[in-house]
Computed example of a mutant assay.
Amino acid sequence: MASLSGSYVSVPVEIDGSSARIDVTGLATGLYIARVATANGVESVKIIKK
């Protein structure tokens, strides 16, 4: 995951079958971009931490 300032952050990810949970509790408030790779390709997902 990367913040909008361009710095990369490491977060715990829990994968359960076809779903995944990203633990953002340790991140500062802000907007982040996560790149998610699946069998269908790679997608960028916007995450807003309030």
Rank of each mutant, 00 (worst) to 15 (best):
K50E: 15
I47H: 03
V13Y: 06
L31I: 11
S18Y: 05
L31K: 04
R21T: 12
D16I: 00
V45C: 12
V36W: 04
K46S: 07
A2C: 07
A39K: 07
I48W: 08
L31Q: 08
L27S: 04
V11Q: 00
S10H: 03
A39P: 02
I22E: 13
K49N: 12
G30L: 09
A37Y: 03
K50L: 11
S3N: 14
V36Q: 06
S19Q: 13
I48F: 12
Y8L: 14
R21V: 10
Y32Q: 09
Y32F: 10
V45S: 11
R21G: 08
T29Y: 08
D23V: 00
N40G: 14
V42P: 03
R35S: 15
I33H: 06
L27R: 01
V13E: 15
S7T: 05
V42W: 02
G6Q: 06
A20K: 02
V36S: 04
S5E: 14
A37C: 04
G26F: 03
G26C: 04
G26K: 06
I22D: 15
P12N: 12
E14T: 05
S18H: 10
A37R: 05
S5W: 01
T25Q: 13
V45W: 07
E14F: 02
D16R: 07
E14K: 04
A34I: 01
V9A: 11
S44L: 11
I48S: 14
S44F: 04
S7R: 08
A39D: 15
E43G: 09
V13N: 13
L31H: 09
E14R: 05
G26M: 02
A39H: 07
S19D: 02
A2P: 07
Y8T: 13
I33W: 06
Y8V: 11
V11G: 14
A28Q: 02
